[in-house]
Design a protein around this nucleic acid. Structure first.
Length: 184
DNA sequence: ACAAGGATCCTCT
DNA sequence: GAGGATCCTTGTT
């Protein structure tokens, strides 16, 4: 895969933790805006932090679907959080895009973000992309395209616990399934 | 039909 | 560091 190739569904047909790591450095394209992914979190089946862990509902149904589709939901009544479904169909897992940097479309991002460009935080990413809940369940390549990419030589990956999942069991809260790129 | 709460962000102190 | 915004999804009556 080179830097201009859209990630195929097979890329996401792996365990969500592997996919979350592999997405760092990849680029999301939408509507003239390009964002480089610098922070992700994995959510897996039998993971009490995962929305699907308490059964399948209309909202969480996309998580159970085939890999490489979008799962977008409204958080706190305000923020649209963007996830990509991972693992084989029938296995509810996904990767939350938690942070990014702007590669292109700076003016449009500023307009959507009240003049700001920092995109560390999943609500900010959704806002920069003008993400919609209606995208949920759609394949990549329509509303949103993901382009292959890698960390730079001067970057390294740091793993840590996930954020904002106080409702999960202590063991699941402690899993180091949050990944970010930092300057080395 | 109703009430509760959420994978967050921003402002103000 | 604390609290409000804001509205949909979910489980319960």
């Amino acid at each position: 895969m080179n830097a201009t190739v859209a990630l195929p569904p097979a890329f996401f047909d792996r365990d969500a933790v592997t996919v979350a790591r592999a997405l760092l450095g990849c680029v999301m394209r939408r509507d003239g805006v390009a964002l480089r992914v610098v922070e992700t979190e994995a959510y897996r089946e039998a993971d009490t932090a995962c929305h699907a862990s308490r059964g399948r509902t209309p909202r969480t149904a996309p998580l159970f679907g085939p890999p490489g589709r979008l799962y977008v939901y409204l958080c706190y009544g305000i923020h649209r959080l963007v996830n990509v479904v991972a693992e084989p169909e029938g296995c509810a897992a996904g990767v939350l895009i938690r942070g990014a940097t702007v590669v292109a479309g700076e003016a449009r991002v500023r307009r959507r973000r009240g003049g700001r460009l920092d995109l560390i935080g999943p609500g900010k990413v959704g806002q920069a992309l003008a993400a919609e809940v209606a995208w949920s369940g759609q394949p990549l390549g329509r509303a949103l395209t993901l382009i292959d990419g890698r960390p730079r030589a001067a970057e390294r990956v740091v793993a840590g616990p996930r954020v904002g999942i106080g409702y999960a069991t202590p063991a699941d809260q402690a899993l180091p399934w949050r990944f970010r790129l930092v300057a080395s």
